[in-house]
């Protein structure tokens, strides 16, 4: 293996990590604020992929403008889901919301089967085959744009959460819900906003992934598991943690190709998920904290 091969592998892992961070942060946000494990995450990614397909293949929209339509739509869907499904649950145990959102996932998936059939789709655009060569390393233009879109979204979300009032209120809710009520935060509205944002992020991830991967109504399950893996690795509700977790998973996956057959690549992330849950349930950050 030459230095150049290694560099190619690392660059590709970093590009993948950007996408992984986008898809995981929505999960982490919803969990952090509401202690809800959103299994419908996978369904949202899949539906967003189909919506992008429809926008690009039928309406001939520029693929990189598709998120501008997809994300607001799913933000509204997220608000509606919170209003009609999550809020009525009240303070039911966590497993109830998990099963409820699992039901929502099943509904989304099977509506997609009914409407779109089980055929595998992929989006082919004029950018799909473009490659840029930087210092001898080939980089797919598509992946680079997807990476950029993901990173821009995450940075603007981070600014929203740290600099604006609703963002800070959401973070306060994640830290201590009761104290948040005491200082006059409308917790119900803020958790609704957080849920909407989480769903919007999932749809952004689905939209971006549809430009790179092929998909069918079952799309999103393995990505959901990868997101769990990242969220647990990164420690919940931490922005840096999610980025770090994404990078670790992307690197492990990229390098596992060297000594594992490609068919087993998914096995690595699933096994890593179980392992991480068992060995360090508080995530990578706990390693640093323990030392400090």
């Amino acid at each position: 293996m030459t230095v150049q091969d290694l560099a190619t592998l690392i660059v590709s892992a970093i590009l993948t990590a950007g996408l992984y961070a986008t898809m995981s942060y929505g999960l982490a946000l919803i969990y952090g604020v509401m202690r809800i494990i959103n299994l419908a995450h996978a369904g949202v990614m899949m539906l967003a992929a189909y919506m992008t397909f429809w926008l690009v293949a039928v309406l001939h929209l520029n693929p990189f403008l598709a998120p501008c339509v997809v994300v607001p739509t799913f933000f509204l869907l997220g608000l509606a889901m919170h209003r009609f499904l999550i809020r009525p649950l009240g303070s039911a145990p966590m497993i109830a919301s998990l099963l409820l959102l699992f039901g929502v996932w099943l509904i989304m998936q099977n509506i997609a089967y009914l409407i779109f059939s089980s055929d595998t789709r992929s989006i082919f655009t004029q950018y799909t085959l473009w490659t840029i060569h930087a210092a001898g390393i080939p980089i797919s233009f598509n992946r680079l744009m997807v990476f950029a879109a993901g990173v821009i979204a995450l940075i603007s979300l981070h600014l929203f959460l740290t600099k604006t009032y609703p963002g800070r209120a959401i973070r306060a809710l994640a830290v201590d819900p009761e104290a948040a009520i005491l200082v006059g935060i409308n917790t119900s509205r803020m958790s609704m906003l957080a849920f909407g944002l989480g769903i919007a992020l999932a749809s952004l991830a689905g939209c971006l992934m549809s430009l790179i991967f092929s998909f069918d109504p079952d799309f999103g399950r393995s990505h959901l598991l990868k997101s769990f893996c990242i969220v647990v690795l990164g420690g919940l509700e931490s922005f840096v943690g999610v980025a770090l977790g994404s990078l670790v998973l992307a690197l492990v996956e990229a390098f596992s190709v060297m000594w594992l057959r490609a068919a087993l690549q998914d096995f690595v992330s699933f096994a890593l998920l179980v392992l991480v849950l068992l060995v360090m349930p508080n995530g990578l950050m706990s390693l640093f904290r323990r030392r400090a």
């Binding site: 966590m94 998990l98 598991l225 769990f228 998914d266 699933f270 998920l273 179980v274 849950l277 068992l278």
Partner: peptide, 24 residues
């Protein structure tokens, strides 16, 4: 190992176990 995890975390781990077993 996985049953040491509480409630929802156990459920998530079992999804991982199921998928990993199938691929294997």
């Amino acid at each position: 190992p996985t049953l040491r995890l509480r409630g929802p975390y156990f459920s998530i781990a079992t999804i991982g176990v199921g998928e990993a077993t199938r691929v294997l």
